Simulated scan of single mutants.
Amino acid sequence: MTVVAIGCALASAVFAALGAFLQHSGVRQVSVDGSLRLRTLPLLIRERTWLLGVLAHVGTAAAQITAIALAPLVVVQPIVVLSLPLVALFGARASGRKLGSLAITGIAATAGGLAVFVALTARTAVATEVSTEQTLLAGEVVAAFALVLVGFGASRTGRARCLAFAVAAGALYGLVSVLIRRVTQAVMVMEQPGIPWFSGLALAAAFLAGSWLIQVAYASGPADLVVACGTALNPITAILIGASVLGETAGIGAGVTMTLAVCGGVVVFGVALLAHSHAAAFVAPPAEPETSSNALGRANSAPRR
Rank of each mutant, 00 (worst) to 15 (best):
L82W: 05
P196C: 03
V87E: 09
K98P: 04
G242R: 05
L149R: 11
A61P: 00
A205S: 09
G113H: 04
S220G: 00
V130I: 13
A125T: 02
G251M: 04
V76R: 01
V187C: 04
A281R: 11
G96Y: 11
V256Y: 06
L273V: 08
S31Y: 02
S101H: 01
A186F: 08
A250M: 05
A205W: 01
A146S: 14
F21T: 07
G34E: 03
L260N: 04
A280F: 02
R97S: 13
G221N: 03
L44S: 04
M1A: 10
T257S: 15
A67N: 07
I236H: 08
P222N: 08
S155V: 04
A154W: 08
R161G: 05
N294Q: 15
E140M: 09
S35H: 06
P222Y: 11
P193L: 02
L120C: 02
L82N: 10
A71M: 03
A20I: 06
I104M: 13
A94G: 02
L120Q: 10
F152D: 09
G158R: 06
T121V: 10
M258S: 13
A302W: 06
G113T: 07
V226S: 12
A202T: 10
G265P: 12
D33R: 12
A164R: 05
V167R: 09
G242F: 07
V54D: 02
V87T: 13
L55P: 01
R37W: 02
R37Q: 11
A16E: 09
V187A: 15
A272V: 13
R39P: 00
P235A: 09
A202R: 01
A20H: 13
A205Q: 04
A115K: 00
S292Y: 10
L22I: 01
L44Y: 05
A279L: 12
S83A: 13
A103V: 00
S199V: 07
L43M: 11
L163S: 14
V118P: 04
L51R: 12
L41M: 10
